[in-house]
């Protein structure tokens, strides 16, 4: 599903990622942990081709995204679902409209939009909040709308950048469980987080990154240093 081979990313003289090699198989649930500025976001950006690698190759869904032409990037992203730390919901738009927004832009027929949006909102447990606007929803609910939007297109990979960063512990737990539930349906999930309590409880694979280098890869152990 995702394969990084000796990937280095430089911004001028600054090395944001150094010689990273790892792979994530289809259907896996993986945490990417590390301090701020360690290189987590760089890995995410390389996956959804917001940035290109300076050296090495990045394969996503069997495609070398480091050599992908700009025109082809939207096609790659249609198979990805992205969840943001700050939810990025459109204020004043209902939960339904927020989830439907991209489907409309892609020219999906209205009946199909309705079916898919309702389905996604059911998955995230917000079917009773279809007409609520973000301002009427709690942080956890807003993030669940964000997740519904990420999965509405039926992606085979969901990448979530600090999805619990702005949430209280209970909402964080709910959001993680939801991502796990999505993973259990067969979708590959990659999550960056600072919340080690959650990581520990989930007992999933963890890739730890520090100073732009991968320092650990395996199931999280509380004794693992600096993760």
């Amino acid at each position: 599903m995702i394969e990084f081979t000796r990937v280095t990313k430089r911004y001028g003289n600054l090395e944001a990622l150094k010689d990273a090699t790892f792979s994530i198989a289809t259907g896996e649930f993986v945490f990417l942990v590390g301090p701020s500025g360690a290189g987590k976001s760089t890995i995410m950006k390389l996956i959804y081709r917001e940035e290109g690698a300076t050296e090495g190759t990045v394969f996503v869904n069997g495609v070398d995204v480091s050599t992908l032409k700009d025109k082809q990037v939207p096609l790659l992203r249609r198979h990805l679902g992205v969840v943001f730390q700050d939810f990025k919901l459109l204020p004043g738009h209902t939960a339904f409209d927020n989830v439907a927004y991209v489907l409309r832009a892609l020219g999906t027929p209205p009946a199909e939009i309705r079916r898919r949006v309702i389905g996604a909102l059911k998955v995230v447990g917000l079917i009773d909040k279809v007409d609520a606007i973000p301002e009427e929803l709690s942080g956890g609910e807003q993030q669940r709308v964000g997740i519904a939007r990420a999965i509405v297109n039926g992606p085979n990979l969901v990448v979530a950048d600090e999805p619990t960063g702005n949430l209280d512990p209970q909402s964080s737990e709910e959001v993680m469980n939801l991502l796990l539930q999505i993973n259990q349906r067969g979708t590959t999930v990659l999550v960056t987080t600072h919340n080690l309590n959650l990581v520990e409880r989930m007992k999933k694979r963890v890739i730890a990154i520090e100073n732009a280098q991968i320092v650990a890869d395996g199931v999280y152990q509380p004794s693992t240093p600096n993760t």
């Binding site: 959804y48 700009d70 025109k71 990037v73 939207p74 096609l75 790659l76 992203r77 249609r78 198979h79 990805l80 679902g81 992205v82 990025k88 459109l90 927004y101 991209v102 832009a105 892609l106 939007r149 297109n153």
Partner: peptide
């Protein structure tokens, strides 16, 4: 940003 991330064409 949402449109770009979800693969809507430029």
């Amino acid at each position: 940003e949402i449109l770009r991330m979800m693969g809507v064409s430029n």
